[in-house]
Design a protein around this nucleic acid. Sequence first.
DNA 1: AGGTTCATGTAACCCGTTACATGATTTC
DNA 2: GAAATCATGTAACGGGTTACATGAACCT
Lengths: 187, 187
Amino acid sequence: MQEISLLAYALLGLLQQQPRSGYDLRKIFANTPMGTFSDSPGAIYPALQRLERRGLVSSRVYASSGLRRRRLFRPTASGKRAFKSWQTRAISSDDVVHRADELMLRFSFMDETADSAQAMRFLRALIKELAAYIPNLRHFLRVQGAGMPLSGRLALESGIRSYETLLQWTRSALGIYTRRRKRGARK
Amino acid sequence: MQEISLLAYALLGLLQQQPRSGYDLRKIFANTPMGTFSDSPGAIYPALQRLERRGLVSSRVYASSGLRRRRLFRPTASGKRAFKSWQTRAISSDDVVHRADELMLRFSFMDETADSAQAMRFLRALIKELAAYIPNLRHFLRVQGAGMPLSGRLALESGIRSYETLLQWTRSALGIYTRRRKRGARK
DNA sequence: AGGTTCATGTAACCCGTTACATGATTTC
DNA sequence: GAAATCATGTAACGGGTTACATGAACCT
């Protein structure tokens, strides 16, 4: 079983919202805040081909008269399964330290491809890992900071603040899910 | 003239603090908050070889009796020049949108390889780009947010907050440099 | 004597980058 | 009829990942 790249997961997630062409996906990466991913054809078309070869998406060409031909992709059952298993897998400390963007990508599709219980489980696990990790960074800064140049110390401080902001966001997001569940009696 | 990877710039920066071996560099990536970079030998040793081939670092093996042999690397004059020119080049909006970590790496070595005037110029330029970019994100959220699922909206909100935190940090960092300059009459 | 840490490397593989290529449709 | 946009691809290249390999020095 081959690894699936972050870009490929982003594609899989977007295709679950609706069938799209490679060009549609490129436009999303070019014109929205999902633009952390590359919108270059040399990244997207081969990635879609790989997903199709692995049976995670299927495609069909639509060439209705007078319209440009488009190849529309949609996830297969196995593709949906692979996505959800990636999305809902346990959060490790390594994820927090080295793959924060992957975590955010996993969360951003949570409502569409999982449910609010899973979103809340995700947020709680993230809070736990962040709350464990941030003190390590603070400790490092306290102990090593004196021997570091000002710009280095400030750069580290910036990294720490960004994790602290993420933790605050996670808590407030969890609060929103909790309140919504109580209020709406939504399953 | 070939491109230089982010990892290679990180190596160049660390080597300007003091000559180090590949193993020293691996330990730094393994044990400090610089650990966003890979500490794998398959990344570091080839990167050092490339830097040497391009004349940006030089190396010498030290094998004093009873000690393990170590190959120490140090930047050449041309390596220092290349680093500084990368570090001090103009900040584009694209840097802010797609390469925030590269910006932080550039800043983190500022005191060691440039001067406080350049650090301040860097921070001012960063403030300008961030102040221009954040409203775009807020605008997108306001206009598109209603049509987005909760988790997607929240993920976007998280990204925006992280940029806002960065802007606050940048302003406070600039304040520190400004005060230090006034107080100390430091050149 | 055996296991751990120090220390440096190599090789296959994957995938993103950059650049190029092609043609149809819409717009002015 | 020319330019811009739509739409899909391909190919060379580079570098990071993973895994493997080797050997010396240190510790017990």
